[in-house]
């Protein structure tokens, strides 16, 4: 396995990373009707400027909901979410997102999907071409530029969605289980690629996953969320070297931390299955 290290395309504009501050955020689905469902309960979390933060928790604990709130896709009902640019009220190009189900434009080819965001971000024609090519190469979709999403496997669609979002070089990058549809090998390559991009371009990343090893490999800090209603149960610092490659998987601290976190997550998962009965 090798990671492609192409020279990153030159940037014509500065994209400031940004901190994210979440205070007392709760969210109820169906709040206006009787029997609304409390999905998030009193979330407090400060994510630093340039931090790589992982949200880890059992399925259904509200990870996607929290990401949609930060993204501004659903209105904040209670509490407050703000970035360095001010309170979050709507989606914006300063916070780009990779959705769990890719959310590509089905009527656009892979390349046109990537070009759409670049055009909206105001890159000139030459930069758009260059950046589109770079990121499509990076996710190994070279040769599939003119394919439509419906012609691609789930893993390929997911990689196209990642390329589309990374290409616009956002200050805040929100990723909802972005490697979930990839096979183990590809996943590993993409994880290293993402670490490299993050290290080189100074972004704040909020990364949702339920894979403990993935979280420990990628993150500076990990929030472990409780089963429904979602609360933040533990916030754990990952004190591992900045440079992380294949070899870190054998690092004793890495293994120890993974096991520790795995136990914490399992408690929540067990609670979740109990709650379901």
């Amino acid at each position: 396995m090798s990671v492609t290290h192409l020279a990153p395309p030159p940037r014509s504009r500065a994209h400031a990373a940004s901190s994210i501050s979440i205070s007392d955020v709760s969210h109820t689905y169906g709040a206006r009707t009787a029997g609304g469902m409390l999905a998030l309960d009193g979330i407090n979390l400060d994510i630093g400027d340039g931090e790589f933060h992982c949200l880890l928790g059992p399925s259904g604990c509200g990870k996607s909901t929290l990401l949609y709130l930060i993204g501004g896709f659903i209105p904040v009902q209670a509490g407050m979410i703000s970035t360095s640019a001010g309170p979050v009220t709507a989606p914006g190009p300063d916070r780009s997102i990779v959705f769990q189900n890719f959310a590509l434009f089905p009527w656009k080819t892979v390349k046109d999907n990537v070009l759409y965001g670049l055009k909206k971000a105001g890159f000139n024609a030459a930069e758009r071409e260059q950046r589109a090519r770079h990121y499509i190469d990076m996710v190994h979709l070279t040769g599939f530029e003119n394919a439509y999403p419906s012609q691609l496997s789930g893993g390929m669609q997911q990689r196209a969605a990642i390329a589309r979002t990374l290409a616009v070089d956002p200050g805040i990058l929100l990723m909802d289980e972005p490697f979930g549809a990839l096979d183990a090998q590809t996943r590993r390559v993409m994880q290293e690629e993402l670490r490299t991009i993050w290290r080189d371009s100074r972004k704040t990343v909020v990364f949702v996953t339920h894979d403990v090893q993935e979280a420990v490999f990628l993150a500076d800090r990990i929030s472990i969320m409780s089963a429904r209603p979602g609360r933040i149960q533990h916030v754990i610092d990952v004190d591992l070297p900045k440079e992380r490659g294949e070899e870190i998987l054998e690092n004793r601290e890495f293994i120890g931390l993974s096991e520790h976190i795995w136990r914490l997550v399992r408690e929540q998962a067990v609670a979740a299955t109990r709650g379901a009965h």
């Binding site: 993204g71 896709f73 709507a90 989606p91 914006g92 190009p93 916070r95 780009s96 997102i97 959705f99 189900n101 890719f102 959310a103 590509l104 434009f105 089905p106 759409y116 965001g117 909206k120 971000a121 616009v168």
Partner: peptide, 12 residues
Amino acid sequence: KWPIWSARSFGA
């Protein structure tokens, strides 16, 4: 809603 959310997040 997904393509709509995508477009909005890119600033449409």
